[in-house]
Design a protein around this nucleic acid. Sequence first.
RNA 1: GCGUCCGUAGCUCAACUGGAUAGAGCAUUUGAUUUCGGCUCAAAAGGUUAAGGGUUCGAAUCCUUUCGGACGCACCA
Length: 493
Amino acid sequence: MKKLKYINLDLLIFFFNKNFWFSFLKNINKEYGIPNINAQNILIEFVSANPTGPLHVGHCRGAVFGDVLSNLFIYAGNKVTKEYYVNDYGNQIDIFVESVYKRIIEIINHDPFPINSNLYPGQYIIDIAQNIIRKKKINNFDNYQSIKKDLSDLSIKEAMILIKQGLKSIGITHDCFVYETEIVKKDLINKAINKLSKNNYIYEGYLPKPKSVNDKDWVKRKQLLFKSTLFGDDEDRALKKFDGTWTYFANDIAYHDYKIERKYDKYINILGADHAGYLKRISSSVDALQKNVKFKCKVTQLVKLFKSGKPYKMSKRAGDFIELKDLVSAVGKDAVRFMMVYRNTDSQLDFDFDLVTDKSKDNPVFYVQYATARINSLFRKLKLNINDEIQNVDLTLIKDKHEINIIKKISEWPHVIDLSTKNLEPHRIPYYLYELSSYFHTYWNMGKNDDSFKIIENDNKELANARIYLIKKIYSILEKGLNILNVAVLKEM
RNA sequence: GCGUCCGUAGCUCAACUGGAUAGAGCAUUUGAUUUCGGCUCAAAAGGUUAAGGGUUCGAAUCCUUUCGGACGCACCA
């Protein structure tokens, strides 16, 4: 230690000398950055988009966020189950299936598809219709009511194929798909509601009129309610509809009870901004179902698309939204993944099509990948395998301030991992990788201006060896970080 | 009207969750390099952290009020 500065009661500041940093660098091993924690069994639910069509850009942020978070937890030594809840039940599915039906009839009988109805018009509905006709599981489409159940199953199956393709295109695979119809079929709803009932969390009562509803359309009605206000929600929530069937929320309580029954150490839900209002209610129900359960919801804010600095508008109603797979084919999986977690999920994200395909240092994805490519080129030049250990290093030859700063930057890595994991904030990783890359590129450029800073091209073999050792440590962290992001580590570009 | 999130340099965002002089990139200015004013490099400048009030040794961070923005607010999913 070089010196110790006293600021006040709680703050001590340490200044380390160079030898500290050398021995620090020496001690970096394969486990460097992995927190020393007890392994946990974590269930993380994300995407969970309705099976009524392919994924679009709006789903993308939550999808990548959940996946990176999973990788992060795995890296930190935990066991992770990535789960997708399939809402294959209820009104929206009915509308979807009817849309597919009308498209089938349009294709077979040339009856035009009813525009301006509540049905989904999109091209993907036509594709699904064609697939169903082609696969010939149903031979006669004349009577909608009689084939409704089969058509529904087939349509959902087709939609799930599209969704899984979209996920695959950005490198995401879920471990587990839980279908809402299964929850209903197994009668898990009664089971969960009984659980709540036993604790007196359920009653018959009245809800106040919502502000967004007209007086005319509002009928005061006694209904079955869950006391979510006991757990911090703004209102108690309805469990049964006017026709006596369960609400979506009741089914979701059952689903979360099913999660709890499977006994994980920790549960994480990733929700889109448009479902943020749902958060209190679902966490209330989880608290009510089981005391002291570790359950966290994370909301990802919207993504705004830009092209050359101008907003890129799209409308779901008109059916012209951008599908995830279109985004990926336009800018590539790496760019999508990197940029989607580059920012804190609490803030809205601007995603510029042009910037992420730019081959320049303005593009953070390129910049980080360029660093790994440059480092690889050094090893190629030396005819060294980048994975081999470097022997007999004399690190005291590293003297420059910038080199010491690189070591300091490297020392931040475990903290980045720790904060990202604890606070569910993986944006720190790409941000850090960008900074570390920036340190590396500056180092590289120092050699361009001054030969004595050339990493390998100088007469001093010992010095070159020490520098290569340092560079390799940078590389191993970039590699770890990119692996967590599931962004390619490029050997050359 | 209510709820959630956000407001930090001209722009897009960080800031180790309450700690030092609030940091990066773009844009700007200056210089270097390049037989290109375009690529690259180096440096400078840029801030009352939306505004007011409070909490304490100490606040961008916590509390409160106001203003501004996004999203949501049926028995839909």
